[in-house]
Design a protein around this nucleic acid. Sequence first.
RNA 1: GCCCGGGUGGCGGAACUGGUAGACGCACUGGACUCAAAAUCCAGCGGUAGCAAUACUGUAUCGGUUCGAUUCCGAUCCCGGGCACCA
Length: 1010
Amino acid sequence: MEYNFRDIEKKCQEWWSSNKVYKVSNESPRPKYYVLDMFPYPSGAGLHVGHPLGYIASDIYSRFKRLKGYNVLHPMGYDAFGLPAEQYAIEHGIHPRISTESNINNFRKQLDNIGFSYDWDREVRTCDPKYYKWTQWIFLQLYKSFYNRNTNKAESIEKLVSAFEQEGNTGHICPGDNAIQFSAAEWKGFDEKTKQGILMQYRLAYCGYGEVNWCEALGTVLANDEVVNGVSERGGHPVVKKKLRQWYLRITEYADRLLDGLDRVDFSESMKEMQTNWIGKSSGAEIDFKIVSRELSVVSKGSSSSHSPLTTHHPLRVYTTRPDTIFGVDFMVIAPEHELVKELITDVHRAEVEKYLDYVNSRSERERMAEKKISGVFTGTHCIHPFSGREIPIWISGYVLIGYGTGAIMAVPCGDQRDFLFATHFHIPITNIIGSYYNGEEANPTKEAILENSDFINGMVMKDAIEVVLNKMDEMGIGERKVNYKMRDAAFSRQRYWGEPFPITWKNGVAYALDESILPLELPHMDDIRPGKDGEGPLSNKEEWLNSPSFGGGRGEATTMPGYAGSSWYFLRYMDPHNDKEFCSRKASDYWGQVDLYIGGTEHAVGHLLYSRMWTKVLYDLRLIGHDEPYKRLVHQGMIQGNSRFVYRLNSSSDYDSTGQLKKNLKRQLFLSYNILKRDCLESDNGKKIALAANKVFENFYPDVNEYDVYDPGYSEIRIDVNMVDGVELNIEEFRKWRNGEYKDAILICEDGSVSLPTGEGQGGAYICGSEVEKMSKSKFNTVNPDDLVYKYGADTFRMYEMFLGPVEMSKPWDTKGIEGVHRFLKKLWRLFFKETNSPSSGGGQGEAVWTNETPSDTELKILHKTIKKIEEDTERFSFNTGVSTFMICVNELIDLKCHKKEILEPLLILLAPYAPHIAEELWHALGNTTTIIDASFPKWEEKYIKETSKAYPVAINGKTRTELTIALDATQQQVEEIVLKNATVQKWLEGNPPKKIIYVKNKMINVVV
RNA sequence: GCCCGGGUGGCGGAACUGGUAGACGCACUGGACUCAAAAUCCAGCGGUAGCAAUACUGUAUCGGUUCGAUUCCGAUCCCGGGCACCA
């Protein structure tokens, strides 16, 4: 009987499904274990082989845990709101609800193919009103809460209001604007609008204003990566910064707790580092520098007229983490968006500054950060050093960002490399305050130097001087100590249609929460999803909805929530997915608790993973759940990159029309095999030769063609579908059929110089393609669809091959070649149970079973128990690739021993069941079992079967292995030395001299030092 | 630019805590079986020299620590991910 994977897999999947084997209960005597995959967005392109990598890993682990006796929750659902569906709707006129639904169905079909153990009864979709009802509900809890810095947790805004009524805001500094101060009496005197305005500055979900990339032509806001060189990627329209009213989440209030929480979770160190850096906590000070009037600056440039009074009353406030370097300040730098810029420009410098500001404005934030070129401009204005009284020039440069600190820095070139480069570039003299620590060639950021040229802190070690300067600053009242975070509050509004509507109503410019009882506030249907006016979302075009009774006489909010709203809490909904009274019952969340294992890509490191941690903390503070970190353990999944393939077409002068555009529907095209191109066109100046050769081809086969007289040695690199390439060898027949025969007339010059012609004539050589590793995407023709592989080799082969590719957490390029090896392994396994017959028609019955009930030998038991041990270890540490190798080794060894014994094979099947569930289930039943292998119990390995008494030690001379000696494991150092010295190879290397030293590491190696 | 990863044969990778570099698989080469093909089986397979035993060399590059370094430390180069409206 053959290994007929298609029938077996279909049969198993149907059997599992009708027996509801994956149904998970919230009540079980077994310990719980929660395995979660990162929420997928159901894109229109469907699954490619990169997506299931993490899903297969988590599925193996879930099944493994189940065999180990756990009640395992392993759910799946869809993060179904998002921009691509909306974009698709704009371009193709298909409503997001429709396209999303069909994408989900497609996704589901693809997932089902692979045989995952999801409990589909718990599926959630963020765009389902039954789901987003609770997203909106949680948003309202955020809106109705503030962060009490005294108790360090979120509390009800009511509580804040009663505090205001009793003592004003003295006990609660305003996080939105710490200048706001009022007494109880003042609070009571405020009108409704003022009160609400103040409360808004405290709420965890609040409305404010923020700058976005605005593209007038597209009428929409763009992401940074959609802006290239100051214009939109789509269409090349101008993009400007625009201030829009936006909702925000006050995640900055949770900065410290998000940092502290990292100590209590099992994330990789790199992940913790990324989050720590993102939060970017630093402590330092904000220091005020008095600004000298613009007239003074002009005067100081040579004129002798007297000083005018100051025209600027605001000081320049800078943020620094290094107050100890204050005497090393040689200039100030402010961000181009700084509010003082206008006031600081002097007439002399105006033109230059404005030119610079225009330049900066044309750059996206990303480009500004990646800028290598040093750029900046002097404002013409100076400020006064608060301690030395020195005049310091104020510059503007894009390397200072408005969003961080105060948007202004004091530049210390001897201690900061960017300041140093700036000073050098603009010939600003550098003050050295760290003596020999500064070499004049680069900055030295040390804190250990002894200060010089530093007035009252001269002679101090820098790190000790920090406190001294801060004290002096306090004394003089010229600044304040400040803890700063790089992290900013999270923008929570999108000027989009396909997202959750805000349960908010606007009355007199004040935002009020809708009553929870009316939730869900459903997203209205719109046929035409166009942006609204002035940067309002598409919903602003739907007046009848904005003014509908749902909003209780007020007006609805036209922005919608971002993609991460629904994904910030979905792990809780899986625990209690059908509850229509609560987002998740406390009983369910207490039972399942944290996600024990979370698998997903590092691309979510600082977005989703921080937001969902924050939401969890808020829900915990409000006593809605009992844990404040969502994920106990996080494992990364590497990206599977695409492996693109190229063909190379020679350009002919006649390929172009009069405007220089490549002609469409070129009749005859000449392609060169990769190495011919490299050798003859690129590495030597043989373009002409190629042209001649090409002409020969045409002369021979198309004597009537003379338009190809002259070939230009240039060539075009054309991406082709990787699925018609075997390794790097092009399937020429398929290539001719590709894209409705676009290349049916191609003439290919193959690797050996032979030619393939459209007529089918040719000498049958191989055309070799070029290749490049890049992102897997449909537009690059490098996607590989799992469905095709599952069809060809089966789900079990596919699962094991994905794992066999390498460590889960590593990125790697996809290569279908190699899948045969894994498939062969499963066939070998099959042959341990059944004799393969040549006629496929003999299937149907049980075929000829070859497994026996004989008693296994010690050698066989040793193989089994070694395998159990290794599989258990490898699975536990997510080393699935070595796990697959272990199975291969085991099966190879059993075949060598011709072992077909049930006592060995049966436990082996259980080990294999998480990796290749279908074949394991099938053979499990073939051995006479009637229940599912999914509920078997994982075998235990026993020391007695695998114990070794001796080891073949590598014997090294000076660290270099020269020979091998088998020695008893319990040998002593002395015994080993005796045996080693007697060895001929060792004696040869000793050349009669006594050894200096013999290193013997038990169970590892022996090294003789000569 | 900043933060985080990664770099080992022709290819994917293994070597888990500093201890035999290249497990396992692919590709390739040679052989067996077959009328033939497929399937299967056997053998070889980092580089250089050698009939061979063996020697030298080799884990991106350069340097260091160590009896011993793919593994630890320092510097450099290259590739990937993220950088706040893609998800």
